[in-house]
Design a protein around this nucleic acid. Structure first.
Lengths: 203, 203
DNA sequence: GTCTATATTGTGATAGAC
DNA sequence: GTCTATCACAATATAGAC
């Protein structure tokens, strides 16, 4: 029953992922995961030895799934405007499908920044090269840019923040209307690129 | 010894605040707070009955201390450019002094959005009036603005994100150089307003 | 592989001495 | 007001039956 084994192990990982993303490391117990997966508590330890190891596997996967995308777009040979559109559209779409991931990642990294060393290596990210490539792309197309690092943080922030602060913004600005907020997020696939491009166009 | 009583009670609140902000609700135990305050665990229950009540008091205070500032600047009679400068400078300064507050607030609200109803009422915030006032201010000064809600989310996001995602950005963009990142945050008091104003200026 | 049973430690919370 | 002692329960984790 090698088939069954893989199936169960993978199933645990998928369920645990959802529970951890929803509740964070501290807010999640092995019991919660076992219940959600419809299995026994001790089976979790059989497969993953400890809560920390299980979490580590999941967090690495989540981190590796979302963060490195950042680089791909900016290494391509699109124009800078195309890159900005491609990046924001892609990230906003991904987070609409995984709305709890931004706050989850930031929350856990805030408690364990030291894990980043390994995570960045695993994910094969090289931020310096990306910064360099942004810098060149902007110069080439006559965009006004004092510092590519501010540009990068601005762009990511404009994409991520509405998800991380969703309860606050949805309640305060949209009277807690789910659909209206979802629509607002979709609008941002145009709003954000336009905002950025306007901001960096040479006056 | 009324004096002593107040002093201890306030002291607990201050210490507990730091511990909660650092570790979140789930990551904090009553024992941790007691140790940090140099008192006994049961004294916490004497003053505040339960962990949840203690947390509630602290969260309300933190929320009320930071979120409503938002409105003050925008109800003033400054020009829109002055308002943008005032808002970003003020928020970035406040978060430099309280760097863990953004992620703390977003994290806890993400787990308990329903608390917002009471919190917003307590804090005396009226978001609709603020949105309206932004909208008018921008129209009056001939700024290009399709939707004041995107403007608001953009501005707040540009201020808050670098704090919420600090571990990630500091490590990836600044090789984990604390001072360089602190300097980067200070730069944003100019960068962010310039970025915003450029973006919304009529072309 | 999957379960039951159990060990151990930590948790929030209360009672009661001083 | 502040402590010690203690409760009831939940946590992670392991041993061992099947």
């Amino acid at each position: 029953m090698t088939d069954k084994k893989i199936s169960t192990e993978e199933n645990i990982l998928e369920i645990a992922r959802e529970v951890f993303i929803q509740n964070g490391y501290d807010g999640t117990s092995m019991q919660m995961i076992a219940d959600a997966a419809g299995i026994n508590k001790s089976l979790l330890h059989y497969y993953y030895r400890s809560k920390e190891k299980l979490f580590g596997r999941i967090f690495s996967k989540v981190f590796g799934q979302f963060v490195p995308q950042l680089g791909v777009v900016f290494m391509s040979d699109m124009s800078i405007e195309e890159k900005i559109y491609a990046f924001t559209e892609q990230y906003i779409d991904v987070f609409i499908e995984n709305p709890l991931v931004p706050i989850f990642v930031m929350q856990e990294l805030s408690k364990n920044p030291q894990h980043l060393v390994g995570l960045i290596r695993e994910a094969g990210i090289n931020p310096e090269i990306m910064i360099e490539s942004i810098s060149k792309a902007l110069e080439k197309e006559d965009m006004q840019l004092k510092d590519p690092r501010h540009f990068l943080v601005n762009m990511i922030g404009l994409c991520v923040f509405p998800f991380a602060a969703r309860p606050l913004t949805q309640r305060m600005i949209f009277n807690n209307d789910e659909d209206a907020y979802h629509n607002f997020l979709l609008e941002r696939k145009k709003e954000v690129p336009e905002f950025i491009i306007n901001a960096i166009k040479k006056g």
